[in-house]
Design a protein around this nucleic acid. Sequence first.
DNA 1: GTCTATAGGCGGATAGAC
DNA 2: GTCTATCCGCCTATAGAC
Lengths: 187, 187
Amino acid sequence: MPPTPLSPSAEKGLAARRKLTSAAAALIGELGWTAVSTRQIAERAGVRPGIVHYHFPSIKALLAEAALATIEPIVAAALPALTDATPTEALDALVQGLDAYRGTDPASLVFTEMYLAAARDPELRERMAGVMHRFKAALTGCFGDEATATVVMAVLDGFVLQRTMDPSLRAASLVPVLRRILPGGVS
Amino acid sequence: MPPTPLSPSAEKGLAARRKLTSAAAALIGELGWTAVSTRQIAERAGVRPGIVHYHFPSIKALLAEAALATIEPIVAAALPALTDATPTEALDALVQGLDAYRGTDPASLVFTEMYLAAARDPELRERMAGVMHRFKAALTGCFGDEATATVVMAVLDGFVLQRTMDPSLRAASLVPVLRRILPGGVS
DNA sequence: GTCTATAGGCGGATAGAC
DNA sequence: GTCTATCCGCCTATAGAC
């Protein structure tokens, strides 16, 4: 749809919302989901503290929006390389993309924080599951069966955790091992 | 060493420390690492709030002790099945043990919370890495090369995260896929 | 050695101003 | 529609009692 013109006041509100979600996402990574406060978000966004509760019903709702807005583009960006790709091509693309997630960067931390928050909040769990399901469906399409897709997803998430323990780990070193899991032998 | 007899007063202190770490571990799982407060720990442990700061220098130190005391026995319990085991035997033992970690249980949550806390605290990272290194060394011994051990560890950690999104996932379904990653073909 | 009372600061949310 | 001042509760840590 074409961009609807907004009143100056509505535009200001939209800008505030965007600054708040962006600040919230950064702070989830830096401090952890449950450690983020409305005051810190407001300070980082350059707005007064109370503004948070005008634009969002609660800090929980703001964190959910911020985290979903972080992971959705990441997952969406990974999908094209999986569509109509051979298993080997898909694996190479995934591993290449994986190197960006070093475990201690904001995106990695938001992902892991969100799994934990989702484990404690059914509504957030549903919303995150919707995003992750699209990714898993694409993997299942590439690799042929769901069990293989599950293992590949687990490796991606788990490798990010491993990297927090050993930053010297490189995604490329996974390739020889992961080639072996492709169904039907090495392709 | 033989158990040293303790004075009644020292014994009371030891009991308090044990109750506090146990309560802290449970609360890390329930609320999240950064959401746990000394008051809640004290209430759960059945002691007065201020006692926490007599037995532990800070809440950070208490959480670190509690989390390490949670993961150490879990890792230690997994090691015997990996010593002198064939790759296939080791895989079966790991998968069987994995079913206990459903993503939303206390132990699963403490593990993931601890990875995040370790990503933000170098000292905790060192201590956790020490525990996880023993596990990885055992896996490397079983599977012959470190890359395979890294993938297996990533699958274990990542599968626990996957399960928070889809509780119907069963560890047994991973076996056919994981058999394929064993070096030297199916053994 | 063990524990308590209290200080001092930060938190989310809301009632109401503009 | 947009934002601010304020309420009231909870937090960690310490000084000092027993």
